[in-house]
Computed example of a mutant assay.
Amino acid sequence: MSPALPVRRGLLYVTLAATAWGTAGAAASVLYDRTGLGPFALTFWRSVGGCALLLAARAVLGATRPRRPGARTLLIGLGLTAFQTAYFMAVATTGLAVATVVTLGSGPVLIALGERLWTGERIGRGGAWGVTAALAGLAVIVLGGGGDTTVRPGGVALALASGAGYAAVTLLTRHAARRGQAEDPASASLWSFAVCAAVVLPLAAAEGPLPRHDTLTVALPLLLYVAAVPTALAYGLYFAGAAVLLPATVSVIALIEPVSATAVAIGVLGERPAPATVLGTAILLAAVAGMGAAETRRPSAATAVE
């Protein structure tokens, strides 16, 4: 990653990553229902596929061999493991909508608390309003989204664990950039996926690592998509953007994920949104736009380090 990545480009990268992430949960729901794969197996194949695609891209582009990961990179990999695995488990337990909203909705709060405790940094009045507005938008979406939404305490706990993993990854990435120690986004993604695959392999083996043989025509394209778009591509963009943005801003922009998940449900599954869904989405996007505007008036991480 160029240390002089402009803030506007960082905003774009995180926005694209969050939009891509919103499709992963929908793909997971289809895989659970039609192929027999479970959360651990899906996390394993997602990570292995992401590694393979990034290695292939490096070979084609003639990139240098990634250096060995340090302790921070390994911690980011563990945080990514918690983020992905707990999220897919929450989707299986309490459904796509609740899992996505709780995971991403808890992100701004956990990140703000972590940043305050770790570095003492305040998000400011504008940041606080942005976080509050984003959470309000999510509350409107969930509470007014229809009577068929099922909320299970175990699934909510898993989603909160996923949110904690996401917060840890965001804070560690930002902290590394501040100290001038940020890795190339592709290398950071590669090592993070490798750590994740190694951790969940025994669990995936115990769960059943392979889809049913009669569902391969459904499973293989979806697994390839999940590995390519919301994994290899999205996490590379995320690590690049998160290094130059405030953690609270990253967490609010990532709330686009529930919006993109809703768009997939409408455009692909034919669902019709309730009025509350439209209103909550509008509030959420307004919060994202406000946080993004505030970021463009702030010096980049590279400037701050220099």
Rank of each mutant, 00 (worst) to 15 (best):
M1Y: 01
A4M: 09
R9L: 15
L12G: 13
V14Q: 06
T19P: 06
G22A: 07
G22N: 12
T23P: 12
A24Y: 00
V30A: 11
T43M: 03
T43W: 01
L53M: 04
A59I: 11
R65E: 08
P69R: 03
L80V: 05
T81S: 09
A82D: 02
G95C: 07
L96D: 09
V101L: 15
G105H: 06
P108H: 04
V109Q: 10
E115Y: 02
L117C: 14
G120I: 10
E121N: 07
G130V: 11
V131F: 12
A134T: 10
L135C: 15
A136V: 03
L138H: 07
L143R: 03
L143W: 09
G144P: 04
G145V: 10
D148C: 07
T149Y: 07
T150F: 10
R152W: 08
P153K: 03
G154W: 13
L158P: 12
L158E: 07
G163T: 00
A168E: 00
L171K: 13
L172S: 01
T173E: 12
H175D: 15
A176T: 12
A176W: 02
A182Q: 15
W191K: 04
F193N: 06
P202T: 00
L203V: 02
A205T: 13
E207K: 00
E207C: 01
L210T: 08
D214N: 01
L216W: 00
T217I: 10
L220T: 10
L222W: 04
L224C: 13
A234H: 03
Y235G: 10
V244R: 13
V244K: 08
P247C: 12
P247T: 05
V252M: 05
I253R: 02
E257W: 00
S260Q: 05
A263W: 13
G267I: 08
V268N: 05
A274F: 09
P275G: 03
A276S: 13
A289W: 10
E295P: 10
